[in-house]
């Protein structure tokens, strides 16, 4: 996964099909994206792991909800004459965003041979959105393993049809583990879509930031917005690592 993307999906071992296999049908030939979660052997540890995933997801949702406010803050600073200069205490996503904006406006001259950041951003956007479509348009095959024992498997079509396979003698705690894993996996899939949604809204804001001076259209800053939103989520990863 690219460094610019959040680790929210790293919690599962996701096996994706190739891009060429994208389809919207749900026949046996439909490709699947396998979301496999292998939980620790002790049940309390397994539950704690799920709880941790849920906390991460909540944190990601909150961070996403803050994106527009953060951009608003940048806008206010710009309106107050602080322009788009990078402040010493600027958070990393804002710093990178301003950096990209500066390049977009031709304000930054890079040394010869230095790769264009915009090119990198464009590549990330393409890779990220490709992945998004694969995850959305394929059957989500969610498996829970506990101490390598296969607890349950659910196949979810992108229209919501749900087929679940249980071990006949599964205990209620095992059922809980799989149900919670399933819920988290599906929520994460939606979260990925929310990243796109927030990126489009952020793009509109960023183009407003630029609009009066550069006349840049919103669509064209979508890759920059995508990167910014992902960077905001990456901040969570860094915070989490610091806490841990």
């Amino acid at each position: 996964m690219s460094d610019s993307q959040p680790h929210i999906l790293d919690r599962w071992q996701i096996v994706e099909p190739s891009t060429a296999a994208i389809t919207f049908s749900t026949t046996e030939t439909s490709p699947v994206a396998r979301w496999v979660l292998d939980l620790p052997s002790e049940e309390p540890a397994a539950l704690a792991r799920l709880q941790s995933l849920q906390t991460d997801q909540q944190a990601a949702r909150i961070a996403l909800n803050d994106v527009l406010e953060r951009l608003e803050q940048l806008t206010s600073e710009a309106a107050a004459g602080e322009s788009f200069s990078i402040q010493p205490d600027q958070a990393a996503p804002e710093e990178e965003l301003l950096d990209a904006i500066a390049e977009l406006r031709g304000e930054v001259s890079f040394a010869p041979g230095r790769p264009s950041k915009l090119k990198q951003i464009g590549g990330e956007f393409q890779a990220g959105t490709d992945r998004l479509f694969r995850l959305l348009s394929h059957l989500a095959w969610v498996e829970t393993r506990h101490e390598s024992v296969f607890l349950g498997r659910t196949v979810v079509g992108w229209s919501g049809d749900t087929h679940t396979l249980w071990r006949e003698d599964s205990s209620s705690i095992q059922q809980t583990l799989h149900q919670r894993n399933l819920k988290l996996a599906l929520s994460t899939r939606i979260l990925y879509l929310r990243i796109l949604m927030m990126s489009t809204q952020a793009a509109a804001k960023i183009s407003l930031l630029l609009g009066s001076s550069a006349g840049v259209g919103s669509v064209m800053v979508l890759p920059i917005a995508w990167r910014y939103v992902n960077q905001v989520l990456r901040e969570l990863d860094r915070h989490r690592n610091m806490i841990n």
């Binding site: 296969f150 349950g152 049809d161 749900t162 679940t164 396979l165 249980w166 071990r167 006949e168 003698d169």
Partner: peptide, 11 residues
């Protein structure tokens, strides 16, 4: 919306 639940001894 289609929701099915299956069981098996050997998954």
């Amino acid at each position: 919306l289609e929701v099915d639940t299956y069981v098996s001894h050997d998954l």
